[in-house]
Design a protein around this nucleic acid. Sequence first.
DNA 1: GGCATCTGTTTAATCGTTTAAACGAAAATA
DNA 2: TATTTTCGTTTAAACGATTAAACAGATGCC
Lengths: 342, 342
Amino acid sequence: MKKKVSLKDIAQKLGVSTALVSYVLNNQKEGRIGKEIAAKIRDTAASLNYRANLIARSLKTNRTNTIGLIVADISNPFFSSLASIIETEAEKRGYTVIFGSSHEDGSRFEKLVDTFLNRQVDGLIIAPPANSEKQIQEILKQDTPLVLVDRYHPSLNTSFVTLNNFQASADAVSHLVKSGRKRIGMITYETTLFHITDRKSGFLETLKKNGLPADETLVKEIAMDNRREDVEKAVEELLRGDSPVDALLFATNRISDCAVKYINSLGIKVPESLALVGFDEAESLDLFHAPLTYIRQPLQKMGDMVTGMLVDQMNGTSTISQKVLHGELIVRKSTGSPDTVN
Amino acid sequence: MKKKVSLKDIAQKLGVSTALVSYVLNNQKEGRIGKEIAAKIRDTAASLNYRANLIARSLKTNRTNTIGLIVADISNPFFSSLASIIETEAEKRGYTVIFGSSHEDGSRFEKLVDTFLNRQVDGLIIAPPANSEKQIQEILKQDTPLVLVDRYHPSLNTSFVTLNNFQASADAVSHLVKSGRKRIGMITYETTLFHITDRKSGFLETLKKNGLPADETLVKEIAMDNRREDVEKAVEELLRGDSPVDALLFATNRISDCAVKYINSLGIKVPESLALVGFDEAESLDLFHAPLTYIRQPLQKMGDMVTGMLVDQMNGTSTISQKVLHGELIVRKSTGSPDTVN
DNA sequence: GGCATCTGTTTAATCGTTTAAACGAAAATA
DNA sequence: TATTTTCGTTTAAACGATTAAACAGATGCC
């Protein structure tokens, strides 16, 4: 690689000290620098195509202006949109984002955290995988500013931005109840991830409050890797048997995706004989004849907030703060009342 | 922030030199280091929770083990999948990815390139926006290893990995011709981006070769921001009038998305009265009654290759190489022959 | 016993910045 | 004229690692 131009090169060429060059190029010591020499320095810098070595600067200043972002799966539109927003917001505030995708895998996650800390990121934004409490605590011990997003660990005292998942499920169920559904099922993941278990609690609690059946057989939990067969089996189990459900809640967009396609292929009438609600948009279902009622997460706000909170933490302006945002139930055809529809 | 542990801290605690600590922790000078002291050093490092400061190392070694990735739009599934693959491949080879999204905007792109170069990335992978030749040339001048992906500038001598877009269009058209279509239209972007214009050339040339009408009125070019109205207007123009088309080729998944939804809403029969082909998968159309025939790009191969080529370039193993991959036409119902269908 | 070799460790320079402090010269003040 | 200020610039240390070269002391060889 061609040797890069350094402050020294400029200084030598002009017979001045590197300090002076540094001051000029950083617009410091405003009044105190000779105009002609300042101009000359700027000219030479431009003509030599000088670019500051941020690595050297970081070493000296102990700041990298870099945020590490670890999401669960960058190829999931939920996270890629969020990443895009965070990147934009970070850039506005003078930070670059480096990113990694844990694929919900603990050891991969650990490795990413390690890499990012070694790289001296100024702060971290993380959507933590299941059972990552220990690693998160390590980060806290290092005093690296940290904000969790989407998920959090209730046992840990960290900053986070998350959805009120309990409420979101509750809203979904209330809506189904109001539109006349009597036996409501849910398909979710088998996991300890709090945001997911919260969705389940909200579901069950709200059923009880409405005096509807709320036993565990109404909740099917599939493995996190979201295999199509698992989803189809779950749908099957909830729809067959002596007391089939008349409505279904899906805990994630990935689940909605598989489930709705399967339901479509079975020729089941939605919303006449089955109502459907999901979490997050599932673009893949745009053309489903009965567009899905779903819980919309305020992505822009979430990304904006999480970035702002991290920056405040990095500046020492604030310490720990925890935000719970509200989802919005977007009602569409998939939950039309069975009475009014026919 | 808590002060971080450095080599010096370990050295002082044990009364040895930092050099020794460095040698031990990097497993250098294998045979020559005392076993007990080595063990002690490792122990202390672990107990103090030492982590190497990669910034300092980079300054000294002049390598950051970082790859800068600039895509056109990270929230487009094409790019987020590609980014995910590149990240995995880079990690395998010991590199971290920092990323940015240009949103097809020249000035944003320029800023990203600047940031990344200042951060001393070891190499760049870029899907360049239109009219970015000058900036790309700047990078080449700096001798920073660079591989373009998805798109490239024919006028510049850079490494790249791209699809044979001409051939892909040609395949699509041939297929339509074989299945009996007589008047084929295309909706694409108004842009100088080579991979897009190449798709258009492939389209027109193949029409001519088959003796079909191939005038410019059959190609509708819409603005890159892909507004729904523009797409709908284009569809409208191609379908109405005295000689409507009986088949359509869409240059990108974003276009397919809008166009197919509109066609669906118009109640036009696919494939009976209109055949459709698109570039790339458009998940959003999964439930369209006539699944779209499309050109599949070998994403995994593309990501793998581009990363490998960049790493080779960074190691000095190779210089410039240019790869053109082949798309695969996935034939589905949307191009069923009009004769055989009824 | 004298000299070379090996072993285990230290010395010290360096990467490219930043920045407090020092400095000499010119200008202002007494 | 002597003294203080101000101005413009330089000096030099520091950030945390890497690494060639130097260096004692032990061991081997003839």
